[in-house]
Design a protein around this nucleic acid. Structure first.
Ligand SMILES: Nc1ncnc2c1ncn2[C@H]1C[C@H](O)[C@@H](COP(=O)(O)OP(=O)(O)OP(=O)(O)O)O1
Ligand SMILES: [Mn+2]
Ligand SMILES: [Mn+2]
Length: 891
DNA sequence: CATTCTCCGTAG
DNA sequence: CTACGGAGA
């Protein structure tokens, strides 16, 4: 129960720190980050500690903050396409995660600014390596120990605080070392203070880790060091900012006595409320005094057990090695009279959101080597007070903004109750959100590969000069290795161990941009290195799409390039590479899923009118890449709300005065001509298809942006390798709980149904709503402002006139379609009803036997787990699942 | 009128 | 599997 050492590291007032780094003149002043300053000064989402001293809090409006603290610096979140753009903070969060990853293999990104780290192994290895290791107070310069951190008066001076901290640490440390001066070393798990000793070691490493975070990013953070996630998170918050807190298990009982349940992770909401209201627990001690039976009387089995353990200070939730987000999404609220009430507005915003999503997905694809498989769109509908009134998902057709927008729009079409010919959208939408998820590893496109290309260069240019390798084969492979205590780190620790805000220089975090100087030719080195590795199986030749024709062309061009290297100055290499890249990007570097392109090429040739009308900048693309796969557009089936249940539909609320509509649509469309809108002209994958085998010295010859992309890809690749390794390890070694095999036996039939549906998809002809040409982008930078600025926040959307003359409304579903697409669109409606039939069949099948649907309503208000039926029998057990499955197979 | 996100568990 | 609600930054 105390076997693990878990650390939670959380950045201090994160967004503000990000802005302080971006706008250094803010540093040291009270500051806050606001979104949208037009209405009452904007909503505050982050406040630095200087401003907190004035009582400024998250959730306040900018105006209110200014009244409390007139000199406060309000920094606006950057705005792009009329909505908040959080990229800067996401990227900063990544920087931090990367530092943490150099200390442990098991880092779980818990949010944009915090991560859990399982330090168990790191600590063990540190002790094994140095069995006589002693943790001295000097190694814990910013650490507190719970139970040894009490102030005797309300408001001690800073000096007094530090005195308390230091003596607390000394007390605790000496209690660890007290008995074992003579024979007790090496310490082992039998020692009574073994766990606390490991905490001390962990805390010492954590001090260094936090120093490294600061050194490499310029950001300050706090940490909690304990035995599980809940305690780690809780202790992190006890002594913010820029400090860390050790929570020994032995101190939990006393800590619990004054700990409100609502402060504990997962008890800050309805579950915590019910604990207080229904079971009279105001503190964690109150919870600790409840019996398991009592808890089982109110909560389901899982929740009751979790609460019971927590009362004792235990929590077994594992730290899962995962550094990447599992979904990428964006959304926007439209409050009050801003609510979207015309088809036009809905379309336009959908388009904007899709553009942002598309951009972020493309970046994600190249840097993380994965592709999202599903798209989810959700809306909040006027008259419904829930956060989301409805959400629908479908397979994600492509990363192009147009297609994403079309699919998303089709998925929410049915919420529009206005007559189909009408331009209004009713009831109006208060929020639209798009999210892409269910990522799968992506193994690149089939396009040209620079290493492949250079193989040819080498072959044709057989008169090579002599040369030596400029880089050792090992170089760069260990940039993200496990924590090893080094002199460097030790000195950086002392350098940054001071607390407080008066931070002087943060230059250190700026990564050095100086390149190694190479006296030898880029091309020669490249070729030689390549030759050196050419027997190894990891040089992949995946350039299937390089036809014989243009292969010769490539070789010719590359060959001519190879002659330019004789003057080996960097600039000419750069030029050569630019040329090479442009040569490669003449290839089909289409970023869309190659499999779809290959498989579904039946009906594209009929579609040229569509392609011409929509894909304006596809002109010079090789005709072979202009392929299309079928579309399915949303159909709108309007049904009376009274008959809703017969559809087996969801908990969607019938809106006041509205009939209910549902709609089912899968969607996929051709993946051609996405070049213009997608990422860079050449992908990292194309340059270096084998990321295990990249000569990083070559990077200095790449254009800066590309270089950065490659570096990120490399880092990521290594991260992923780590994750996988650990995943396997975990599977073999521990926690049988992790083997939750939820319903995977039903997969076969489900996928059979899917295949049938896919077949239908393929038969369906395409159609779509038309989206106007891109709205001009509004690249507002966030700005430090002290004076109110009302100006540029109100959307700079120049309403581009759309070519509506060739658009008509479909009589069946009311969406706008191009006159060129009418036949396809009609076909689509036919196919869609077919698909709906299929879906119904599959739903019926999936339902199977079901009996226990009559649930007690006693506790239907949310719980973390289950709905608190008194016997807890309503959560589906494994046996009920099997029963369902049996029934399913008998059909 | 806080806003814009992300992760997870459950029902069906 | 999808859709929803809860919890959190
Ligand atoms: N409700 C919210 N809405 C939007 N963004 C938020 C919200 N809460 C937090 N954030 C963003 C801004 C924060 O800087 C960042 C990290 O949150 P969090 O760690 O809770 O606080 P913080 O980092 O600002 O201060 P602290 O020093 O207390 O950790 O996430
Ligand atoms: Mn934080
Ligand atoms: Mn946080």
């Amino acid at each position: 129960m105390t076997d693990r050492i878990v650390v939670l590291l959380d950045m201090d007032c994160f967004y503000v720190q990000v802005e302080e780094r971006h706008y250094p003149h803010i540093k040291g002043k009270p500051a806050a980050v606001v979104q949208y300053n037009t209405w009452q000064g904007g909503g505050i989402i982050a406040v630095n500690y200087e401003a907190r001293a004035f009582g400024v809090k998250r959730g306040m409006r900018g105006d209110e903050a200014r009244s409390k603290c007139p000199e406060i610096q309000l920094v606006q979140v950057p705005v792009n396409r009329g909505k908040a753009d959080l990229t800067r903070y996401r990227d900063a969060g990544k920087e931090v995660i990367n530092v943490l990853c150099s200390f442990s293999d098991c880092v779980e990104r818990a949010s944009i600014d915090e991560a859990y780290i399982n330090f168990t192994d790191v600590v063990q290895k540190t002790i094994t390596k140095d069995p006589g290791i002693k943790i001295t107070p000097e190694k814990l310069k910013s650490s507190w120990v719970v139970g040894h951190d009490h102030f005797e008066d309300e408001n001690p001076s800073n000096d007094r605080k530090e005195e308390i901290r230091k003596t607390g640490v000394e007390e605790w440390l000496s209690s660890l070392h007290a008995q074992e001066d003579e024979d007790a070393f090496p310490l082992n798990s039998c020692h009574p203070h073994w766990d606390n000793f490991r905490l001390a070691v962990a805390a010492s490493i954590c001090e260094e880790m936090r120093a490294a975070v600061f050194q490499q990013t310029g950001f300050r953070c706090s940490a909690g060091i304990s035995h599980n996630k809940v305690l780690g998170k809780l202790s992190c918050g006890l002594h913010k900012p820029n400090q860390q807190t050790i929570l020994p298990q032995t101190e939990v009982i006393t800590l619990w006595q004054s700990m409100p349940v609502s402060k504990v992770r997962n008890l800050g909401g309805k579950l915590g409320n019910s604990l207080t209201e229904e079971l009279g627990c105001s503190t964690m001690s109150d919870l600790a005094s409840l019996s398991l039976q009592q808890l089982l009387g109110t909560y389901d089995n899982k929740t009751a057990h979790w609460l019971f353990s927590l009362g004792k200070g235990f929590d077994s939730e594992p730290v899962t090695a995962r550094q990447l987000p599992k979904s990428i999404g964006c959304g926007k609220n439209f409050q009050g009279k801003e609510a979207l009430n015309t088809r036009d507005k809905v379309q336009k915003w959908m388009r904007s959101l899709a553009e942002e999503l598309s951009e972020r997905l493309n970046v994600d694809q190249t840097s993380n080597k994965r592709r999202a498989k599903t798209l989810t769109v959700s809306v909040r509908i006027d008259g419904d007070d829930r956060f989301t009134s409805m959400s629908r998902s479908s397979t994600l057709p492509s990363y192009s903004a147009e297609k994403l927008a079309r699919v998303a729009l089709s998925l929410i079409q049915h919420t529009n109750q206005a007559p189909s010919k009408d331009h209004v959208w009713s009831p109006s939408l208060k929020n639209i959100s798009l999210s892409a998820g269910k990522f799968e590893d992506w193994t690149g496109t089939g396009s040209a590969d620079i290493q492949e290309l250079f193989k040819k260069v080498r072959q044709s240019a057989k008169h090579n000069e002599e040369g030596s390798f400029c880089v050792s084969p090992n170089k760069g492979v260990k940039s993200q290795k496990k924590h090893v205590q080094t002199d460097n780190e030790r000195s950086s620790m002392t350098e940054f161990s001071e607390r407080g805000f008066g931070v002087q220089k943060v230059d250190v975090y700026k990564p050095s941009t100086s390149h190694p100087k190479h006296s030898n030719s880029f091309f020669r080195n490249f070729i030689l290195k390549h030759e050196n590795n050419s027997n190894s199986s990891d040089i992949k030749s995946i350039s299937s799409s390089v036809s014989d024709d243009n292969r010769d062309e490539n070789v010719d061009r590359a060959d001519s390039l190879s002659k330019r290297h004789h003057d080996s100055d960097n600039e000419s290499k750069q030029n050569a590479l630019d040329l090479l890249i442009s040569c490669l990007s003449d290839e089909d570097s289409d970023q869309c899923e190659g499999n779809n392109c290959e498989e579904k090429s039946d009906n594209d040739s009929d579609d040229s009118a569509y392609d011409a009308a929509t894909d304006v900048d596809s002109g010079d693309v090789d005709t072979k890449v202009i392929q299309s796969s079928p579309d399915i557009f949303a159909e709108q089936i309007t049904v009376d709300s009274t008959s809703r249940s017969t559809l087996g539909s969801t908990t969607e609320r019938a809106l006041p005065g509205c009939s209910k509509a549902i709609q089912v649509g899968d969607f996929s469309r051709n993946c051609s001509s996405e070049k213009g809108s997608e990422t860079s002209p050449i992908s990292v994958k194309e340059l270096f298809p084998d990321l295990d085998n990249v000569d990083e010295s070559l990077l200095s010859f790449l254009p800066k942006e590309l270089k950065l992309e490659v570096q990120e890809a490399l880092k990521l690749h290594r991260t992923k390798t780590r994750e996988k390794k650990l995943g396997i390890w975990k599977f073999i070694n521990c926690n049988p709980v992790l083997h939750s095999e939820r319903g995977n036996s039903s997969r076969k039939l489900a996928s059979a149904v899917e295949e049938i549906e896919d077949d239908i998809d393929e038969v369906v002809a395409s159609s779509g709503t038309y989206f106007p040409a891109e709205a001009s982008l509004n690249h507002d930078e966030g700005q430090a402002v002290n004076t109110t600025k009302e100006n540029s926040d109100s959307v700079n959307y120049t309403k581009k006139e759309q070519a509506l003359e060739d658009m008509i409304d479909c009589e069946q579903c009311g969406i706008k379609i191009s006159v060129f697409e009418v036949p396809e669109h009609e076909d689509y409606h036919v196919a869609l009803s077919l698909q709906n039939d299929m879906k119904k069949v599959s739903n019926t099948l999936n339902r199977g036997l079901d009996k226990s649907s009559a649930n007690s309503q006693k506790h239907t208000k949310g719980r973390k787990r289950g709905n608190g039926n008194s016997s807890g029998q309503n959560t589906p057990t494994k046996s009920t699942k099997l029963q369902k499955l049996d029934a399913f197979f008998k059909l």
